[in-house]
Design a binder for these strands. Structure first.
Length: 419
RNA sequence: CGGGGUGUAGUGUAACGGCUAACAUGCUUCACUUGGGCUGAAGUGACUCCGGGUUCGAAUCCCGGCACCCCGACCA
């Protein structure tokens, strides 16, 4: 993409009403636009990041047998009354509205109810199980206080997978698979080292759940980490019983602030019972499906990456989720340099599935500042100061955004050098 | 939902109850420059959040509303 064509621009200063680092940087660099408190639009660069995260998650969900669907945002009140989750006293963050005919509907906060209902139409035998269904969907939650930029919005993108199993063994096996898939997802998006599987409260579903907590000063949660073992306990469930169960010692734990970036629950048979998801087992007995729920907030994940990996100059994207892998920067105005930059744009664009090319008629300093703010993993400088190698081929300067390290590489070798 | 704070060009900031609401940045044009946000010149852009009130006079004081931010509670 030519930067001269990109409709967004960078800005020197963040709007005064944004305090969260993630929103400040993402707005300054032109990734997102704030519509209202807790409601953000994703602009071209921001959407590319979101799509890259989505792609990583989809691969992992498909790999463990997930089947993708797209459920509705508008919710049928009757379904939620069956599980007693329509009442505002029980769930206080619904966005509810009325249809023209006077009946009530709500915007989906989560999707256990509608999906369980759908599955009940198709599942009638143990042969129909297990089934794993997931989606990427915008969730609406009427938070009393939205905050922290895109970390806690009223409207946000989430991947939610639901598992339907015939037996406890079947469920447990998948739960472990899903957990392992989550670990791989966090590795791929660049948060692996700072993310801990964390023992946590199970809410109304079960006694405990497991959260994926990413260590960050911007976090709302407090966790106690055993760095050696690589696991943690949420403060809300920190007690001797839990520590004993996990084989942890209090003296080995370090307190850290963290962001809940993922959560996996065992839902048991609660929803299947309330919504009538039954099947016949091999012995011909009627049983309720055992369910699990596995969520990751994509927009929150994006915010967490910005929050934890950026530096004083701007964003630093991990290569797998960066909107583009490379940023070609034309730093001289000579025709020769310009021709080489155009060539690089053509070649690398094909090899790297798109690059950002700063072809603007602007001074080098401004381009560097913008490139650092936008944060693509590699900056490829092309200008009159480039040199040639022994074979009379031009060398480009390839600068690593994160480390600042510079390599001099001929165009033909750049793609393989930075992948 | 309780408490606190803030609303002024696109953005960031000024302005004692009193002159045509100022400065920076952005944007336009010209010249100059071209490897880390040059330089110079001329332009452009504001019903001072909305509605009332006090006053000779309100961006400024008062009342109401709305919006946004922060702390806390909440986060199935």
């Amino acid at each position: 993409m030519r930067q001269s064509q990109l409709f967004t621009k960078t800005r020197r200063e963040a709007p005064k009403d944004e305090v969260a680092k993630n929103a400040q940087l993402l707005i300054r660099a032109g990734y997102i636009h704030k519509e209202m408190a807790g409601v953000y639009a994703f602009l071209p660069l921001g959407l590319r990041v979101l799509k890259n995260i989505e792609h990583i998650i989809r691969e992992e969900m498909n790999a463990i047998g997930g089947q993708q669907v797209s459920l509705t945002a508008l919710q049928d009140k009757n379904l939620w009354e069956k599980t007693d989750r329509w009442d505002d006293a029980k769930i206080d963050n619904w966005f509810k509205t009325k249809l023209k005919n006077g009946s009530e509907t709500g915007l989906g906060i989560t999707h256990e109810e509608p999906l369980t209902n759908i599955m009940s139409e198709y599942v009638s035998s143990y042969r129909d199980l297990p089934a794993y269904v997931y989606q990427f969907q915008t969730k609406f939650r009427n938070e009393t206080r939205a905050k922290s930029g895109i970390m806690r919005g009223r409207e946000f993108l989430m991947k939610d997978l639901y598992s339907f199993s015939a037996t406890e063994e079947q469920h447990a096996e998948f739960y472990q698979k899903a957990k392992a898939a989550y670990v791989r997802i966090f590795d791929k998006v660049g948060l692996g080292e700072s993310t801990y599987v964390t023992f946590a409260d199970g809410g109304i579903f079960s006694k405990y759940s497991e959260e994926f907590q990413t260590v960050s000063e911007a976090g709302e949660d407090l966790i106690y980490v055993d760095v050696q073992k690589g696991i943690a306990v949420n403060k809300e469930v920190l007690n001797d019983e839990v520590l004993a169960e996990l084989g942890l010692k209090r003296e080995d734990l370090i307190e850290k602030k963290s962001i809940e970036t993922g959560n996996i629950f065992n839902l048991g048979t609660r929803f299947a019972e309330q919504l009538g998801l039954q099947f016949k087992n091999e012995a011909g007995e009627l049983k309720h499906a055992i369910m699990g729920c596995y969520g990751i907030g994509l927009s929150r994940l994006m915010g967490t990456v910005v929050e934890t990996l950026s530096d004083e100059k701007g964003i630093v994207w991990p290569i797998n989720i960066a909107p583009f892998k490379a940023h070609i920067i034309l730093v001289s105005s000579s025709e020769e340099s310009k021709a080489r930059a155009e060539e690089a744009y053509k070649v690398l664009g094909e090899q790297l599935d798109g690059v950002l090319y700063d072809d603007r008629d602007a001074r080098a300093g401004e381009k560097f500042a913008d490139a650092d703010l936008i944060g693509l993993p590699y900056q490829i400088l092309i200008g009159d100061k480039n040199q040639k190698d022994g074979n009379d081929n031009w060398l480009c300067e390839v600068k690593n955004r994160k480390t600042g390290e510079v390599q001099h590489v001929v165009l033909a070798d750049i793609a393989s050098a930075i992948k």
